[in-house]
Structures are given as structure tokens and as C-alpha cells.
């Protein structure tokens, strides 16, 4: 009975709306005893209360995470929210992760839907990234660090990611009523949580982005620099000074902890974000990183469950 009940509840709360007048037809789809079916039929209006509660909780969680995306997409977003619930549904124990599940579901669908602006997924991911980075776990064990050397990898704070977008969504104002479309420009951001737990965003040059992506994967400084220079058609000798400045800046910010001790590469930071549809190689030299915004005072995600 419990399995049938769970299937029925799932359909009732996540699926298309069911009119109480159709309760018999709805319940007939599930394997209930006649007695159980009669009770569920009698209480069907009350059963629908759970639909409102479940959907209200999920919708609120998503609205807190990506408010500007919701406001801009309007009814189109509502349609995809319904599809997410009906076709996939949340799987996570953690309400703060529901938005990521939703966006993973939406990404391929939005790419095929002419009603969804090309920048929508970038904006949604950028909005969601604040909560993701604010809550990323630190390493359980302290890492042994050594001096910076070309043949070693580097250790960053665990809460650090390179995010790539096809649009400069990070430059949009926070006003939810604003409808200015973002500029289509390859964008790379270094997003990290500082020692005060604030999430900070640094705009990267193509070379800095390519370099940091590799370093976050655990490659050595030398290998990262050479590959990044090759990718961006940059002279490695000319990039050395800028690299030193960038790393010094990240160290001063508390994002770069030091070099990995021991031989060679560093253990990779978990899950560096690399968007293959984002920025391509660029001939621009390394200009380091420019801080575009911080989330001071809003370092806490709003997804507290109760």
C-alpha cells in the first residue's frame, strides 16, 4: 500500500492538477484496497492540500535562488517549473539544491525553445551560483602547503569556481523589474568565498580563466600556464609577470592558499565549472582579475528548512 501511496502522492503533488471530481479516475490508477481507496476518495479535497504545500515550498526555494530569471521569463518559466515537477521532480534532501536540479533539467530544453532568450540559462546559473558557492564545503583535513613553484600545483579554497557565460549576465543590475538584455560577450568569472564567508566575483581575462581552470583541476603551475597560453595564443614569457600579479592578488584575498606540498600536481578542487559553450580563446594578454561584485551582507543562502 505504501508504495502505491507514494506513487499517487507524487503524481498528485508534482503532476498536472487533478480536479476533486476526477478523484475516482485518479485513484483507479493505483493499487489500493477498496477500503483504502474509499478513505482516500473521501479525503481527496484534504489530500489536495499537500499539493499546495509541496509546490509552495519548492517554488519559494527557486524564487529565492533565481528571482531575476523568474521575473524575466514569467509564464515561460512557470511552464518549465511545471514540467520539471511532472517529468523529473526534486530528488535532493536539501532544498538549497532544488534550483540546481531544476536548471540541469531546463538547460537542454531551453536551448531548443525560441521563447527562452539565449542568455536565460547563463543568468539563472549566475544567480544560483551565489548559494552554491556560499555553501560549498571546506576540506575536512587541512592541506599541507609549500612555497609557490612552477612544478607544483596550487591549493585554493574549496569554495572557488570558474564560471563561463556567453553573456555578461554579471553586469545586469539586481533590480528584478529590469529587462535590459545582457551583452553577448564571452565572460569568465572567478567566484569564491572569502574568509569572512562572503561570495566574491572576479571578472577574468581569457588567459586568466584558462589558467585558473587548469589550476583548479590540480595541474601544475607550469603546465597550466603553458596550456593556457597556447589556448589564448599568448607568449608565456610575457604572461609570467601578469600571472604572478594574479596569484598574489588571489592569495591576498584568501582565495589562493599556497602551493601543494609534495611532488607535482595538487589535488583538484571539487567540480570546477567549465562551460564549453562559453568564451573561446582570446589573444588578449593576461590582465588579471577585476572584481565585479561581491555579495557582502548576503553571504547566507536563504534556504533554511523548517
Amino acid at each position: 500500500m505504501q508504495s502505491s501511496l507514494e506513487a499517487a502522492v507524487s503524481a498528485l503533488v508534482h503532476g498536472p492538477a487533478v480536479d476533486a471530481r476526477d478523484a475516482d479516475a485518479f485513484l483507479a490508477r493505483y493499487d489500493f484496497s477498496a477500503d483504502d481507496r474509499a478513505v482516500l476518495r473521501a479525503d481527496f479535497e484534504r489530500l489536495l492540500v499537500y499539493r499546495g504545500l509541496v509546490r509552495g515550498t519548492l517554488r519559494e526555494a527557486v524564487a529565492l535562488a533565481i528571482p531575476r530569471t523568474l521575473a524575466r521569463l514569467g509564464s515561460v518559466f512557470d511552464e518549465y517549473f511545471e514540467r520539471f515537477l511532472a517529468e523529473r521532480g526534486p530528488r535532493t534532501h536539501y532544498l538549497r539544491d532544488v534550483t540546481t536540479e531544476l536548471l540541469d533539467f531546463c538547460a537542454p530544453l531551453w536551448a531548443e525553445d525560441a521563447r527562452v532568450p539565449a542568455w536565460a540559462h547563463d543568468l539563472a546559473r549566475h544567480e544560483a551560483l551565489q548559494i552554491v558557492v556560499s555553501s560549498l564545503r571546506e576540506a575536512v583535513t587541512a592541506r599541507e602547503l609549500g612555497p609557490l613553484e612552477l612544478e607544483r600545483g596550487l591549493c585554493f579554497v574549496e569554495a572557488a569556481r570558474v564560471a563561463r557565460y556567453a553573456f555578461a549576465v554579471h553586469r545586469l543590475v539586481s533590480d528584478e523589474t529590469d529587462r535590459t538584455p545582457p551583452e553577448r560577450v564571452p565572460t569568465a568569472l572567478f567566484v569564491y568565498r572569502d574568509p569572512e564567508h562572503d561570495v566574491r566575483y572576479l571578472e577574468l581575462s581569457p588567459l586568466a580563466a584558462a589558467l585558473l581552470e587548469r589550476l583548479l583541476r590540480g595541474e601544475t603551475l607550469k603546465a597550466s600556464l603553458l596550456a593556457a597560453c597556447a589556448e589564448t595564443a599568448t607568449d608565456p614569457t610575457a604572461a609570467l609577470e601578469g600571472t604572478a600579479r594574479l596569484l598574489a592578488d588571489l592569495a591576498a584575498r584568501g582565495a589562493l592558499l599556497g602551493a601543494a606540498a609534495g611532488d607535482g600536481a595538487a589535488p583538484p578542487a571539487r567540480g570546477a565549472i567549465v562551460d564549453p559553450d562559453g568564451a573561446g580563446p582570446s589573444a588578449r594578454g593576461l590582465r588579471g582579475a577585476r572584481e565585479t561584485s561581491t555579495m557582502r551582507g548576503s553571504n547566507k543562502d536563504p534556504h533554511e528548512r523548517s
Binding site: 501511496l5 506513487a7 502522492v9 508534482h14 509541496v54 526555494a61 530528488r91 534532501h93 532544488v98
Partner: peptide, 10 residues
């Protein structure tokens, strides 16, 4: 249930 999280006490 059914592989989904309800985020509600049933």
C-alpha cells in the same frame, strides 16, 4: 517516494 523528494511531511 517513487524516487522523489516531497519536502513535506506526509
Amino acid at each position: 517516494g517513487s524516487g522523489r523528494a516531497f519536502h513535506e511531511l506526509l
